[in-house]
Amino acid sequence: MRRPLGTRAPLLAVRGAALAYLLAFVALPVAALAREGFRGGAAKFVAALASDQARAALGLTLKVALAMAAVNAVMGTWIAYVLVRRPFPGRAVVDALVDLPFAIPTLVTGVMLVALYGPQSTLGALAGASGLRLMYAPPGIVIALLFVTLPFVVRAVQPVLLELDVGQEEAALTLGASPWTAFRRVLLPPLVPAITSGTLLSFARALGEFGAIVVVSGNIPGRTLTAAVLVYGEIESGRPQVAAAVSTALLSFAFALIVTVDWLQRRARHAVL
């Protein structure tokens, strides 16, 4: 590697500062968490995860995250397609709106959703009368997760779609393919890696979501209590070991997903070059 001119001292200082900052701020806290999770050995770690309450919370978390991911994969791709390929008046505003969930505090997201779909609102009461409970029930958690993770799939698919040549799609249409066939056979295959990346990232994000869920879920143990909210409850009741064990498991899973996505994206980039 090339060494720039001058002494190496400033370079080492910058490197040292960057390393020290990351170690102090990220590595050290995560190490403390893992240590607490495994306090009392692997058996206690497993026991914490296998308790009825933890199993129910982890199961619910995976279920709502899966439901969210399925809707997000379809709607995110759909929104990205319309934004890139179907120009309409006001597109710039809608495009900006997609980033709104990144800017809005997640707790405020929950407050907003309860204000509109909660049992005290007109819409919530209407849904309740027809037997569909939106807020303080699993569907509300899925809606909150959809809000929070909206940008992931859209923003993953959009740049890939922009790079794709319209020619192939037009050729398919000219040759008599229906728009749906053209989409499925021509447009969709090159988008699959981006859709997968975006969906996995949104899934990883959903595993730890707290602020939006704590307001909309009602937090009924065994029914609407997600893992992150369970962690909060365990800390408040002075059981940090259970909280740390559940956290360590969730964190490892989410981090593995993020590393996978990073790897997928790097592979996709190399394939293009």
Binding site: E36, I235, P240, F255
Partner: peptide, 22 residues
């Protein structure tokens, strides 16, 4: 190092609170 930078994305806010308490 690059992985460490991404790690906070995988961490739930409540877990960060727990880490600080620990």
């Amino acid at each position: 190092l690059s992985g460490l930078v991404d790690l906070p994305f995988a961490v739930s806010p409540v877990m960060i609170g727990l880490m600080a308490m620990l």
